[in-house]
Computed example of a mutant assay.
Amino acid sequence: MPEIPTHELEQRLQRYGLNPCGEILGSNFHCNLSEIHLNRLDPKNLQEQEDAFTAGALSVATLLNHRFVEERYRQSRELDPIVGVSFTGLFDFFVHAFGVEWLEWWQAGRPQTAVGLAFKQKEQEYLNRWRDTVHRVIWDYCDRHGIKRPNRCTTVQPSGTKSLLTNASPGWHPPKSQRFLRRITFRKNDPVALACIDYGYQVVPSQSDKDENGHLLNDPFDPRCTEWLVEIPVAVSWADLPGADAIDVSQFSAPAQMDFYMQVQGCYVTHNTSATIELREAEVEALGTRIYEAIRDDEGYISAALLARFDDHQTFPRLPFEPINRATYQQFQQDVLDRRRTQDFQSALNRYDSGYLEEAGPAGCDSDKCLLPEQTPNS
């Protein structure tokens, strides 16, 4: 094994265990990211998948031609250039590939039965094929252009907002439900929110807007209201698959989620996987044991966030994702059409948005844009 200089070792250790974007910890480096929306691909069309991952690989590889002005960034890239080709909508892709039987296997906890092992083998074939495509394309590009090869090129990045653009289940995760009411936070009178009203979507005050008695406001035009929630009824792409409604995805066990996450980490990801495992109190011991085993047996586990299920504790009103049944979804959809005043969302937006507006208002990360203050790194 070659000796690694101390300064390079220190640089690399700063990166180990980061989330895929590296925006939480670490310093002096940048990661070039791209994302494949698997929910838009045909599981039977291997050439389409090859083309998609080739495009994602080239889009990050070409960014390695950029030369940083800052010396510390240039040095970091010379030591270890970082790229990450990610995907989202994996769960949707596999439902379309394997059908309701795959969902039923999930519901049973992804057991190691003959059927289960066959499903795992097929999952691995897809994941390995995509990973190999990414590395082959990036390394070939780097060799042809005299650029140092990144030693790892695949990741699954946090993919909440971007997944919504194509109605993909985020990253590798199961969706919250087959159908749900999505609530997106805007400041009051935001041009996009006003256009949403014209397009038929309902707007309600946010969780932070309350009266003098601490009760939530109901009128979005109340002068006390400062933030709006735009409510959008959403269904996953496989919601109407025969038999899918019999599966409650919110009941998928924490060990089953862990098993699927390890498939992704072991068969596709060479950086780190953004992973949030949702669990109930009764699952803590079993999940803790499984994580211990993954570390003990060196299975490639790096990290995962753990989140208590909403239904396991007191919840709160006007959730960002509120599961709804088929009938409620259909009623919400009809209500949107009944309220709609225009068929052209772009023209509605142009009516309210005359150009760049200073952002002010919604708190937290569920806004229409990032609200974290911009920071300038120390020299």
Score class of each variant (00 low, 15 high):
Glu123Asn: 05
Glu125Trp: 11
Phe98Ala: 11
Pro174Ala: 14
Ser347His: 11
Leu18Met: 14
Arg12Gln: 02
Leu349Ile: 07
His215Ser: 14
Met258Ile: 02
Ser303Arg: 13
Thr88Arg: 00
Trp139His: 07
Gln47Tyr: 14
Val192Ile: 14
Ala108Val: 05
Glu78Asp: 13
Ala304Gly: 01
Gly84Cys: 11
Ile277Met: 02
Val264Asp: 11
Ser169Leu: 03
Glu281Ser: 15
Tyr268Trp: 12
Tyr201Glu: 02
Tyr329Lys: 02
Thr155Ser: 12
Leu63Gly: 05
Asp297Glu: 14
Trp228Ala: 02
Thr161Gly: 10
Tyr292Glu: 08
Thr154Val: 04
Ile232Lys: 09
Ser159Cys: 09
Gln334Met: 07
Ala193Pro: 09
Thr276Leu: 09
Val115Ser: 13
Val192Tyr: 05
Gly84Thr: 02
Pro175His: 14
Val137Thr: 00
Gly171Met: 04
Phe91Gly: 05
Ile295Leu: 05
Ile184Glu: 08
Arg318Val: 06
Phe87His: 05
Gln375Glu: 15
Arg224Val: 04
Ala246Ile: 04
Val115Arg: 13
His313Pro: 00
Trp105Ser: 06
Leu307Ala: 10
His7Ile: 01
Asp338Phe: 10
Leu287Gln: 06
Glu283Ile: 08
Arg129Trp: 03
Gln331Glu: 07
Gly160Cys: 09
Arg280Val: 14
Gly214Pro: 05
Ser250Pro: 03
Ser27Lys: 14
